[in-house]
Amino acid sequence: MNYAQLLLPDFSLILCGYLVCRFTALNRTVWLQVESLTYYFLFPVLLFHSIVKSPLDLGAASSLIAAGVALGLLGIGMAYALPHLPWLGRHIDRREHAASAQVAFRFNSFIALALADRLAGPAGLLLIAVLIGVCVPIFNVAAIWPMARHAQRGFARELLRNPLILATASGLLANVLGLRIPFWLEPAVGRIGAASLALGLMAAGAGMQFGPLARAKALATAVLAIRHFLLPLVALLLSRVFALSPVQSTVLLAFSALPTASSCYVLVAKMGYDGAFTAGLVSLSTLLGMLSLPFALWLIT
Rank of each mutant, 00 (worst) to 15 (best):
D93C: 01
S36H: 15
A120N: 12
A257N: 11
V34T: 06
V103E: 01
F110E: 01
L71D: 04
V20N: 01
P86M: 04
P212R: 13
P163K: 06
G89P: 03
A169G: 09
H97Y: 00
G121P: 02
K53Q: 15
I144Q: 12
V141L: 11
L233E: 09
V234W: 05
L293Y: 06
V34E: 02
P294Q: 06
G190C: 14
G124I: 07
L37P: 02
G77D: 01
A98F: 00
A66C: 13
L71S: 07
T250A: 12
P294R: 08
V130L: 10
E35V: 12
A174F: 12
H49Y: 15
L293M: 13
T301Y: 04
L172F: 11
L233R: 14
A276K: 13
A204E: 13
L252S: 06
V234K: 05
L42N: 02
A188W: 15
T38Y: 08
I181M: 03
Y40L: 13
G272E: 02
K270G: 07
L284K: 04
Y273D: 06
A214G: 11
F155Q: 12
P122H: 02
A203Y: 05
I76S: 02
T38G: 14
F210Y: 14
G133F: 02
A112H: 00
L164E: 00
W184A: 15
L199Q: 07
F48M: 09
A81T: 07
L47Y: 03
L236N: 12
L26K: 11
N27V: 06
F48R: 04
L230I: 10
G68C: 13
G17D: 03
A169R: 08
F255L: 14
R22F: 09
L127W: 05
T250R: 13
M1N: 04
I111M: 14
A70G: 10
L284M: 10
V45N: 06
L172W: 11
V136Y: 00
A61Y: 08
G178R: 09
V176Y: 12
